[in-house]
Write a protein that binds this DNA or RNA. Sequence first.
DNA 1: TTGATATATTCCGATAACGGAATATAATGG
DNA 2: CCATTATATTCCGTTATCGGAATATATCAA
Lengths: 113, 113
Amino acid sequence: MARAPTTSDVFNAIAEPGRRLIIELLSQRGNLAVGTLVVALGMTQPTVSKHLGVLRKVGVVSVTKLGQQRVYRLEAERLKVVHDWAKQFEQHWSHQLDRIKERAERKARSQRV
Amino acid sequence: MARAPTTSDVFNAIAEPGRRLIIELLSQRGNLAVGTLVVALGMTQPTVSKHLGVLRKVGVVSVTKLGQQRVYRLEAERLKVVHDWAKQFEQHWSHQLDRIKERAERKARSQRV
DNA sequence: TTGATATATTCCGATAACGGAATATAATGG
DNA sequence: CCATTATATTCCGTTATCGGAATATATCAA
């Protein structure tokens, strides 16, 4: 068997740096037309359209026609699965923080002498 | 220009479903030797080794020699960047929840009449 | 040393993904 | 209808990626 088709789930959609930028921009500036993304990101129009196509296929964005423009909207709930997946490892780095905090407190106590 | 090399950052490393499984397993069961992963995941040994190679390159796992075994350990902090990235969109879906809650409360009030 | 076990690496072949260039499609204005 | 603007799609070349099979490397045990 060969490589599995990947651009079909959210994790792969966000693997592309350019696509992450698109997502961030839509989050910060609200719904945007393709042209706006093109100038804001300095990418080619076809490149942006293709990235948007991937994001749309996965449901991370949706489109609305507005005259001759296509306005893209972030469907952020689709990113929740990523957040939740990563969150399950939170314990690891928070434990790490605990240990650091503990050490700091021990040090503070010893200096208080 | 052609496709950009991707298996060099965390987001791409976790784009592969099999690699996510490896990460989850290491998180749940602690440090594991390659062979354990192989039987637990039902993947081929070379496949597992290659996935581990990618994860190691990105720093998501580290290795220790133990006899003829290689014990892999999850370096979960490396996943924090993913968590943080996704977290920045939390507002969107929590707002959504607010709206749902609000609607439910309105409905409850109206029925209370 | 020799043989077995554990793991990594290499060499495929198939296919997916990316960017660029050109082109197609759609909508608007005149 | 025609030209223009906005966007999508297609085609192409290059490179990455994945799994499988075979092989290399390392370590242990006798």
